[in-house]
Amino acid sequence: MTPAVRFAGVSRHFGPVRAVDNVNMEIAEGEFFAMLGPSGSGKTTCLRLIGGFDQPTAGKIEIFGVPTAGVPPYRRHVNTVFQDYALFPHLNVRDNVAYGLMVAGRPKPERYRAAEEALEMVALPGYGLRKPSELSGGQRQRVALARALVNRPRVLLLDEPLGALDLKLREAMQEELKALQRRLGITFVFVTHDQTEALSMADRVAVFNEGRIVQVGTPQDIYYRPRVPFVARFVGSSNVLPPEVTERVAGRHVHAAVRPEALRLGAEGLAATVLSTAFHGAATRVALEAEGGLRLVALLPKGVEVPQEGACVHVTWAREDLHLMTEAGA
């Protein structure tokens, strides 16, 4: 099957800055694909390259097998939900949603009907005559979504669409977006710096760092089997053991990751001092410092005895919880 989006050796350099550096990826049709990374990692630039707002300095991008070089944004079957929503302030909600159909020359009754349907889809029926300035942040976000979907794009790009919403609304929208994507079957490409968002919504996640993709995989892959220390640290803040420590505890001279919830405090294992403890409800977070200044974090479940700050403890874990990272890299 032709991938919905294909990047082949794509780079985008701004002078000496390599915003995107030799990226290769394939996004399958109907997939919910997340691009995850810290700010400045190149994920948003990749999204803009798909949307056509920016051109790659090298490499090529195909959308459903069609090369995109020289194709302007308005001729791509791709629509975008912008980070700041970019609703047209001079138009009401209905005209905002119907904008794509209006410039395509569709007759008024048709585009108003389509706009109302799209507004129903995002749970905003009857909001058509309001101005964007009269809506809350969450409502604007839905209007932006309806405006992009009304054109029936083959790929929907979402640039940190939940970033401006408060936590509760964000969680609700995560579920709604996911359900919407399942229902419509449209390929969603979603940019975020929030790892829980990426892990909970996406079918597959590409982790970006310094303009490159460092790992692509299912959320489970990314979470349990990070290939490089960056992924282990960035996604879910795993403990990363340097090669010397790994060699001592597992006999291999490579980086290794072990999740905070997998750490146990016992009578033997790695000696460490308790730096601080913090109660998190379901678990207690214990910050530790092992020899050589190695910082570790343990999440102790309810019912386990929590050590005093300053106490000397031994840290251990089940053998299968230690994930060896056989690739080199930061």
Partner: peptide
């Protein structure tokens, strides 16, 4: 005028004149 307004318009299928 936020720059993304113009990009949004292009994204929704409007050419430069529109």
């Amino acid at each position: 005028i936020s720059g993304s307004l113009i990009e949004a318009s292009m994204d929704l299928g409007a050419d430069g004149f529109q």
